[in-house]
Simulated assay, not measured.
Amino acid sequence: MNLDFTVVFSYWQALLQGLALTLVFTVGCAIMGSLCGFLLSLLRASRRRWLSVPAGLYVELFRGTPLLIQLFWVFFCFPVVFGIDIAPYVSVLLALTLYMTAITSETFRGALKSIPGEQHDACVALGLASWNKTVFVVFPQALLRGIPPLLSNVVSLFKESALISSVGIADLMFVGQNISNSTARPVEFLSAVAVIYFLVAFPLTRLVGVVETRMLRRYAY
């Protein structure tokens, strides 16, 4: 077999379009999943068992099952069970967000435990309402402490988003597979896809270390 990696450059626009869709799903699901994950971490930390127990079961369910199964269930089973027709892109967005919510909730739960009790006592002394305390005191500190693992979660989500190609979404992996099949050059194009994933993920992994060593040591307390 004669390898010719120059053929990849003839399809660079299609690969970039697939990468753009992958990044849109990653960023959108990361933002929504992080916000929902923070709310879920508050439910898990609640003293009311009717709130903490279901939240804990949700986290264990989505952390204990493969993401591919979750994608298939939302994509194929959700419309049948609930009788609602949803677009493929919406079902993928929902599945990735539900997964991201589960893993980020654990990040925030650990961050919440690291907030000193004096912070909560100060809020009581100042007479802050529960909502104001959560939004203006608890959330900023939890976010600051949770930045490194949150960034790691985003990197993991970016890599695992390649699974959405299995349900026909034209992301980077889907485009690469189609081109490799049509050109009969799987080595060149699948290698190119792997390089693209690496070029995006590697700087983010380095960013985690920079944030942890510089930002957190300077501002966290």
Rank of each mutant, 00 (worst) to 15 (best):
D171W: 01
R185T: 00
G176A: 05
V167P: 08
S152V: 13
A125R: 01
A142C: 06
V175N: 08
K159S: 02
G146I: 06
F136D: 05
F198A: 01
V155G: 02
Q177G: 07
W131Y: 14
I179R: 04
L150V: 03
V195L: 15
V175R: 06
A142I: 05
V135C: 01
N132D: 15
V193K: 02
L190K: 06
L151S: 10
V175Y: 08
S156T: 14
N178I: 14
V154L: 13
F139K: 03
P148Q: 10
D171I: 00
Q141G: 08
V155R: 07
P149L: 06
Q141M: 14
G127V: 07
S191R: 05
P148W: 10
T183C: 05
V187C: 05
S182K: 13
D171K: 00
P140F: 01
L163K: 01
T183H: 04
L151C: 13
P149F: 13
W131R: 14
S156V: 15
G146P: 03
W131I: 09
L190W: 01
P149M: 13
S180F: 03
G176Q: 04
L151N: 09
A194N: 09
F198G: 02
A194K: 08
A142T: 05
I147V: 14
A125V: 13
V195Q: 10
I169R: 01
V193W: 02
T134Q: 10
I196S: 02
Q141W: 13
S130L: 12
L143R: 00
L190Q: 06
A129V: 06
L157I: 06
Q141R: 14
